[in-house]
Amino acid sequence: MQGISLFPVFLIGLFGSVHCAGMCGGIVSAFSMVPPAARAFPVPVATRSAPAPARMLSYNAGRLGSYMLAGAIAGGVANGARALGGLGTFQVGGYWLANLMLVALGLYLMDAWRGLARVETLGNSLWRRLKPLTARLQPLDGPVKLFGLGALWGWLPCGMVYSVLVTAMLSGSAASGAAVMLAFGLGTLPMLMAMGVAGGRLRMAIQRRPVRIAAGLLVLGFGLLGIARAAAGTHAHWLDLFCIPGAAA
């Protein structure tokens, strides 16, 4: 199987990271150098020996590691299901589902339709079991604990993550699924790193409605372009830069 193009997945993470500002923005703001009273999330960081970027890298390394693990599971399980149920039907159905999820994500980012929020309830059971573990990592006084917190936080129920996991399922293997989620996570990294250094002010700016609408329209465009591509049967290679292609045999 040829791997799914990772560039559009990276772009989805980059533009969709305005959602991360709401979901994870509070915790990453706690890593900044702003006074404790100004932090949007009550996470005690006991040490100031490491600069904010170093703390953020430790946290995000754990978060990306969890994304890759989820992608590997999705890609591996779906690969087995594809082998049992037939390649063609799985690819076509999965491709349409992946792009419909992008449409839903774009509307979600714009606050035009909150249906994707219902998908987030699928992960509540797992998160309820993992969340108490975050208390054992306090105080966050070293890179290992920050990595552990990021690894746990990567399983926070998130409709945006779930929408990209559908793409990871199409990737053809566990390794490709992990690569898809790594590309997505790297796309979210610039925004979260910037918030970790700049603090809550940047988070507030990103959460402004015009910014969310612009980001949502871009992600919505990716999904609509992919659907149009499938409906028209177009296979132009330049489209791989802007929409998710199905993995080919």
Rank of each mutant, 00 (worst) to 15 (best):
Y108H: 10
A194V: 06
V211C: 05
I206L: 15
M195N: 01
G88K: 13
L109N: 05
Y108M: 11
M204C: 14
L220S: 01
V161K: 00
L130K: 11
L217M: 05
A215T: 00
L218N: 06
Q207V: 06
M204V: 15
A112S: 14
L122R: 11
L122E: 09
A117N: 11
L105R: 09
L133W: 13
G199Y: 03
T134E: 14
L182G: 06
C158V: 08
G221W: 04
R201K: 14
A168E: 07
T134S: 15
F90D: 04
R212T: 07
V92Q: 12
L107M: 09
V180K: 01
A214E: 02
Y162M: 10
G200P: 10
V161A: 13
G106T: 02
N124V: 12
C158S: 10
A168N: 08
G148C: 13
Q91G: 11
L220T: 01
L146Q: 15
G177E: 12
L182C: 08
G154Y: 09
I213G: 02
G115W: 11
R128A: 15
G185E: 00
Q138A: 14
M181I: 00
M181Q: 06
L189F: 08
A194L: 07
L122N: 10
L149T: 04
M160K: 07
G199Q: 02
S171D: 03
V161Y: 02
P143R: 04
V197P: 03
L109M: 09
G94K: 06
M195R: 02
A198E: 10
F147L: 14
M193A: 10
D111Y: 14
S171T: 00
G150L: 04
L165G: 05
C158I: 08
A178H: 05
G159V: 02
R208Q: 07
L140Y: 12
S125P: 10
M204P: 11
L192K: 02
L165P: 05
L149Q: 06
S171P: 03
P139D: 10
F184A: 06
L107W: 00
M169C: 13
P210H: 04
M160Q: 13
D141G: 15
G196T: 00
P143V: 04
L133C: 11
